[in-house]
Write a protein that binds this DNA or RNA. Structure first.
Lengths: 339, 339
DNA sequence: CTGTTAGCGCGTTCAA
DNA sequence: TTGAACGCGCTAACAG
């Protein structure tokens, strides 16, 4: 049995579809109270609900918003997505979810598919691959498709899209400064893939803070991981050669891996070596050694992105670059240097 | 600048929209090679992409699939969603994501919104509230809207929808039997909210295995949690009164909470008390004491659900009830009884 | 106060 | 070999 359409209820009421449409959409009209009531009753009785595709086609707005993330099964993106979803839904939009699997070409496909679905706008966290020329590819796609977009976890002053993120440079500084305040001088760093601004900024914060405290920067104290658990684990074997007393991991997942590897090497965290992470995903309070970390307001990042997008969509407001506050979350994986 | 439409390219080619449509959709036709080529070239040059809303409206299939989960920020659902998304996308569908926040009324709203968006079908994990009469509410909504649906993590032989899940009863049995094989007799259980079949089946498995081994069932050894970390933590204070030597938690999150509380009480896991979980979410290998648990094929649950749905959509295949294999994942939170 | 007409962008008869 | 005409379900202009 097909859904009841405007026409169905128009027929049942003996009126035109226009009349019914006017009444049901609360448009200004001059239709008799009785007919109004008739239409409304009928709509309820026949369980009428407008077809969003048809409305979207004519109004040129689908009431759909797209979200592109590298990997929804990653705790960071899952929590961010929740923030997006809550705002989107409370504004009567639907959310189209896409995974780019961290690949720039898939990201481009997602952008196109979402455009094909006439999304009113989209929220995107660029894939790790999308930096430099490839980032431009994505940005240009968005631009040429005339899409409204908000970019999360990336800060690009010169582009025409709104952004939401924390100040990754300062956040990294605060983590490293904290380590230094604990007496650490031999501070290693496990990074994500080199290229994206987010990673660059964190790494620059690390370098800056070292320099500021007259600690010379040693390339061998930096391991380039990929933001996954395993790379944090693998990094330890390499970094230990340089006898660090602390390790700054550019995300929590890699910190978990590092802690695990350290334990396997017979080193105690934080007694023998300190580890600090970045993100403060939910599980960081529950891992073997509750993780000290730079806390990002992950859920809020998603919320704000959605709010900004919807605001841009409804009012004709210009783009903005929102920087959310980070905090340092001290738990038990860091301690004063001990020697 | 608006997107190029069929009409645009028809004009540019000096042909009718019909001709263009025929060519671009590879429909049987008798159009000269040259014109064919012209159309195809133009389509590429003008970057033509069909409007999915328009196509959906006319074909009566939107190529959209809906997914309703209680909470996408929950690691279990995030991973399941990834499985769904991968299959959905590789079949050229789009995914509409909805959170029910665990509430039946929101679940109903989601179902309606998805129906309004003309989704071709949907995948749903019922909210914990949706059991008994409330479950029927959701089921009836799906039915009366004529929606194709696949239900994940729930098994209901009498309904008309396909289901995908593991055998929760057997899975619970295997966990408890394992504990018993380790010599445990005083086995406590931390459950989720009572009502949903999934929880009931696990609890019944627990009871059945106890009985099978002549261990009398003691109501005070069962704590009714809510599947969240905190309730696992809170349960311990209550359960300890009955001196259990092992605790069976109906999901991993609560197991983490239990382990944490146990530690706080000065008890060592597994030396003083064993803990076993359920789900095997990704983090269970990384928590303080790597968790022994019943492993569900979470990603596969999502994959299979999507595959079944798409199969039902394309071929007119009847519903099926797929039961996936679980396994027991023994890690370090369980040990032989020690007294 | 209400209905007719037109069309959003597309696919599908049918006639030419 | 091609195109005009129709309709998916709906809204918006303009009549009347």
């Amino acid at each position: 049995m097909p859904r009841t359409t405007l026409k169905n209820i128009a027929q049942a009421a003996g009126l035109s579809t226009t009349t019914v449409s006017l009444v049901l959409n609360d448009k200004p009209h001059h239709i008799s109270k009785k007919k109004c009531q008739l239409v409304k009753d009928l709509a309820i009785k026949m369980n009428y609900r407008p077809n969003r595709l048809a409305v979207g086609l004519i109004k040129k707005q689908s009431k759909n918003i797209g979200l592109i993330v590298p990997d929804i099964s990653n705790a960071f993106f899952a929590e961010m997505t929740k923030g997006v979803e809550d705002i989107v839904r409370s504004n009567k939009y639907n959310l189209l979810l896409c995974n780019s699997n961290g690949r720039n070409n898939l990201e481009l496909e997602c952008i196109n598919m979402l455009a094909d679905s006439s999304v009113d706008g989209l929220i995107i966290t660029m894939s790790p691959e999308s930096f430099g020329a490839k980032e431009q590819l994505s940005l240009n796609a968005l631009k040429s498709l005339g899409l409204h977009a908000v970019i999360v976890d990336s800060f690009n002053e010169i582009n025409q899209f709104s952004t939401v993120s924390i100040d990754n440079f300062q956040a990294a500084c605060s983590a490293v400064e904290y380590l230094i305040s604990l007496g650490h001088k031999r501070i290693a760093c496990i990074t994500g893939p080199i290229g994206p601004k987010t990673t660059e900024n964190r790494l620059n914060g690390y370098k800056y803070s070292l320099k500021k405290h007259n600690i010379s920067y040693n390339e061998n104290m930096v391991f380039h991981g990929d933001y996954h658990y395993q790379s944090g684990y693998d990094a330890v074997a390499v970094l230990l050669a340089n006898k660090p007393t602390a390790i700054f991991c550019l995300n929590d997942q890699m910190a978990y891996g590092a802690v695990k590897a350290l334990k396997k090497q017979g080193l105690r965290v934080p007694d023998d070596i300190s580890v600090i992470g970045f993100d403060n995903i939910f599980f960081s309070q529950m891992v073997e050694v509750p993780l000290s970390t730079v806390s990002q307001p992950i859920y809020k990042l998603g919320e704000k992105a959605a709010q900004i997008l919807i605001t841009e969509l409804t009012t004709k407001q210009k783009t903005q670059h929102l920087v959310l506050e980070h905090t340092l979350k001290i738990r038990q994986s860091t301690a004063k240097i001990n020697n």
